Simulated assay, not measured.
Amino acid sequence: MVKERILETALKMFRIYGVKGVTMFDIARDCGISKKTVYEHFEDKQALVGEGLQQLLTNHGDYLKDNIQTSTNAIEELLNSTRYMTNMAKTLNPVMLHDLQKYHPDIWNNVERFKSDGVLHGIKENLKRGMTEGLYRQTLDINIVARMRQLQLEAAFDPEQYPADLYEMQNVMDQVTAHYILGIATTTGQQMANQFLK
């Protein structure tokens, strides 16, 4: 119970302030426990960061699996997962990702693996589903289109491509997703997509 509270608090603080700017003392104080108690559950900050990030990735993976089961078709599945990612990005300070890359490269490798194994695989499966349902064009090259979509998502989340003071994240995601769906959809798929995209 205490361990879960520490993890939850640490993740919340990392998402707001970045990883480097948060100390074990800060986490202990925010939890209302001693620093010694934090160290009883986590050997050091590296261990806490690693476990916290793994939990984030696991939650994300679980959501994507559930979404496949509960969505009535490929387009609904795609739009739900895009909304989920957008909402998650809104609560994430880009400094956290920068800190992970710079100060915790081993942990960052897990993010890169998740992007290639989890996200890219999920995009390919969604394309296959949409083609089977007759909502996406049969002529799509799944490997090319999936990679294109992944690059599109990475660009949408990149503050260098879409600076926050000039672009609203929700609008960027809505625009790139509408462009993507209407580009891969059959006539039937486009009609369905237009109902969701209004």
Results as ranks from 00 to 15, higher is better:
Y136T: 08
L64G: 03
G32S: 14
K124T: 09
M173I: 13
Y39N: 04
G189N: 06
Q190H: 03
V19N: 01
M13I: 04
I68D: 07
V2F: 02
T70C: 05
Y63V: 02
Y84I: 00
F42E: 00
H179Y: 07
G134K: 10
I6L: 11
E125A: 14
V172Y: 06
L7K: 11
L92T: 15
T139K: 05
I107E: 13
Q55D: 05
L135C: 07
F25S: 09
L197H: 10
M173Q: 11
V19R: 03
R5W: 04
Y63W: 10
Y63P: 02
V111S: 11
M88G: 15
Y39I: 02
Y39T: 09
S34F: 00
T177F: 06
L120Y: 04
L56M: 14
Q54G: 15
D106Y: 06
G134C: 13
D44P: 13
V2E: 02
L78Y: 11
R15Q: 14
P163R: 01
M13R: 09
Q152L: 15
Q150V: 06
N73G: 10
Y162L: 05
A74S: 14
T58K: 15
K90W: 13
G189M: 07
Y39P: 02
V19S: 03
N67P: 08
R147D: 05
G18F: 08
F196P: 10
D44L: 12
I184C: 08
G134W: 05
L100Q: 12
K124Y: 08
E77S: 07
F25I: 02
G32K: 15
A47Y: 07
A155M: 12
V38R: 02
K45V: 11
P163Y: 03
M192A: 09
I107T: 13
Q170K: 14
A74L: 07
P163W: 01
A185D: 11
P94F: 10
N67I: 02
F157S: 15
F25G: 05
H41F: 12
E76A: 04
N87L: 09
I142F: 07
I142G: 01
H60R: 14
T72V: 13
Y167Q: 04
A74R: 06
M88R: 12
V119N: 03
I181N: 04
I181V: 14
H104M: 05
Y180D: 01
N93Q: 12
D62T: 12
L11P: 00
E51M: 15
D165N: 12
F196E: 01
N126T: 10
Q150F: 05
H60E: 06
M131W: 11
L92S: 12
C31P: 13
L135P: 15
V176T: 15
E154D: 14
F157E: 08
F42R: 06
Y17C: 08
Q46K: 15
Q69D: 07
T177G: 06
K3R: 14
T72F: 01
A178D: 09
P163C: 03
D158E: 09
V22I: 10
